[in-house]
Nucleic acid binder design. Structure first.
Length: 549
DNA sequence: CACACATGCGCC
DNA sequence: AGGGCGCATGTGTG
């Protein structure tokens, strides 16, 4: 496949390198240049998708495939199967240091003038050579392609935005909090809750946001608490606790997803958060603006499709347990995974008494629970599913020995010590705390292989789905046809003309099959989706939510 | 004054 | 003595 490397040059020019041939364009010519090449679908190679793609999209150019060198560099540098020496060369130290940029500030990442003008073609050659020389070239190649496709999706989703009805959002806020207050003031209903809390604890002037003040007030009232978590407070029957819990809930809504949040992240009828692919060490995405990945259920009613359009919401049932079954090749767990509910499958298989036990046991195994109900379930299930439980157990032991682990497609975990930086001023840790530290790292590596491989499955899923949605056709640009508008680890939302919703749902299912095949080949693991076609995101997943049309 | 950290909550 | 994140506030530090 043709690769075309794009690098920025001083003076708003772009260096284009294809098969060793160099040419120079003015930056303003780039959209038409890319647009005209795009039907042939070369792979565009660039430093960071966020630095190139938004302006192309704004000019109406949709890119089919790319290679994101920043993501690739960080991934390959830590991949156990890659000889990191092969990534060394001209400017490689800059690539090592490149941090993420954001759509609102794409230049933020540049460390100095040189980093602004890195040669994409040189780094691309090194990455290609490093992959080719690796013992896991095929898997790493797939991972790089999926990661880069994810970077395209991330920029496209910020560009398109999640359809947002500010009137619905404001009505919701007004109902719960009262009218929008002046800057710096609490809304009426929140202030009223503060008054209730003060009265209940006989503490005029109490600031419920102050931890020391609040703890003192609770103790004076005879409540023996050392923290203010909702779960702790709920255990105490005191009239003030009810008011305090309501205050905490409303205050969180006001502060996190209230008017100020809307001012900053909603524009033109769209919620446009910023996504950061591979923002977490496991390869999961994170979000560095707008809080996309902690988008609370409370405000989802405001996410509404345009008139004549629908939201197709698809999520994978028990993604990580299924991934564990696939990567461990555990036949018994794969059998329980055959169906819509893996946990129920374990019950039907006679492995556990209840669905809840199954869930506790599996989550416990993946997170490294050692005690409580969850820890107790793990022991019994280990005998039933030795390959699956053995795999995470071995990952934990490797971590405790100080070894790095890798995902199915070859992403490496950060090393012990790299995972959590130590303060050099701290006294050297004693044997006890060293052992604790190693066990904590073991829990991390245990979870890393499953969470990381789950992220890889999801990347393959959205990458294939993105292409399928484009092929579904329709005329016009990205936002005139079915397109992804939200992604949350194991769930996607597609905004689509209503008459295409059924086809979109079918493509989401087909893409899940593709992803399963890419990762697990012949080991047919089912990844059933829960799909809803709705007007409002809040209706998704509920029985009877389907829109008749 | 800016900054880092702790706490608590949201999501998976 | 269960993994990964982001965000807001208050508090303590330089």
């Amino acid at each position: 496949m043709t690769r075309v490397a794009l690098s920025r040059l001083p003076g708003d020019r772009v260096l284009v390198v294809e098969d060793g041939a160099e040419s120079v364009l003015a930056a303003s010519e780039l959209p038409s240049y890319v647009g005209v090449r795009e039907p042939e679908a070369p792979r565009w190679v660039w430093d960071d998708t966020v630095r190139w793609y938004p302006s192309l999209l704004a000019a109406g150019v949709r890119v089919q495939r790319c290679h994101d060198l920043r993501l690739g560099h960080h991934l390959l540098r830590r991949a156990p199967a890659v000889d990191a020496q092969l990534l060394q060369g001209a400017e490689s130290a800059y690539w090592d240091r490149l941090g993420p940029s954001t759509p609102s500030d794409p230049a933020l990442f540049s460390v100095d003038e040189t980093a602004e003008h890195l040669r994409a073609d040189l780094e691309d050659s090194r990455q290609l050579a490093a992959v080719a020389a690796s013992s896991e070239a095929t898997r790493l190649g797939l991972l790089l392609a999926a990661e880069s496709a994810g970077a395209l999706v991330a920029v496209e989703m910020t560009y398109a935005g999640l359809p947002w009805r500010s009137d619905v959002h404001e009505r919701l806020l007004a109902d719960l909090l009262g009218p929008r207050p002046p800057r710096g003031a609490r809304p009426e209903k929140l202030e009223a809750t503060v008054a209730e809390v003060r009265a209940a604890f006989d503490a005029p002037g109490l600031n419920p946001d102050s931890r020391p003040e609040m703890l003192a007030a609770l103790r004076r009232a005879g409540l023996d608490v050392t923290d203010l978590r909702a779960s702790t407070l709920r255990a105490h029957a005191h009239p003030g606790v009810v008011a305090l819990l309501r205050y905490k809930q409303l205050a969180h809504l006001f502060q996190t997803n209230g008017w100020a949040w809307s001012d900053q992240w909603v524009s033109g009828g769209r919620f446009r958060p910023s996504y950061q692919p591979a923002g977490s060490t496991t390869g999961r995405w994170s979000s560095n603006g707008g809080g996309a990945l902690s988008f609370p259920a409370q405000v989802r009613p405001a996410a509404m499709a345009d008139d004549g359009w629908r939201l197709v919401v698809a999520d994978v049932a028990q993604l990580e347990p299924r991934v564990l079954a696939g990567m461990s090749g555990d036949q018994a767990l794969a059998k329980s995974a055959r169906g819509a509910d893996l946990y129920q499958g374990m019950v039907d298989d006679g492995a556990v008494a209840s669905r809840n036990d199954a869930k506790l046991g599996l989550l416990g195994a993946m997170y490294g629970a050692t005690s409580g109900e969850s820890g107790r379930m793990v022991a019994g299930l280990t005998r039933r599913y030795p390959d699956a439980f053995g795999l995470v157990e071995e990952a934990a032991r490797a971590g405790e020995r100080g070894q790095v682990v890798r995902t199915l497609l070859g992403r490496g975990s950060p090393a012990l010590g790299e995972a959590w930086e130590r303060d050099p001023d701290d006294p050297p840790p004693d044997a006890d705390s060293q052992a604790r530290y190693r066990r904590a790292y073991g829990r991390f590596t245990r979870n890393f292989i499953v969470q990381g491989t789950g992220a890889e499955w999801a990347l393959c899923w959205i990458a294939d789905l993105r292409n399928r949605l484009w092929r579904l056709g329709g005329a016009g640009s990205l936002v005139d046809r079915p397109h992804l508008v939200f992604f949350l680890h194991d769930e996607v939302v597609i905004h689509t003309p209503a008459d295409l919703a059924d086809e979109v749902a079918a493509e989401a299912t087909a893409a899940a099959t593709t992803a399963a095949g890419l990762l697990f080949r012949d080991l047919a693991i089912d990844f059933p989706l829960t799909i809803s076609t709705v007007r409002s995101y809040a209706e998704a997943g509920k029985p009877g939510a389907a829109v008749d049309s």
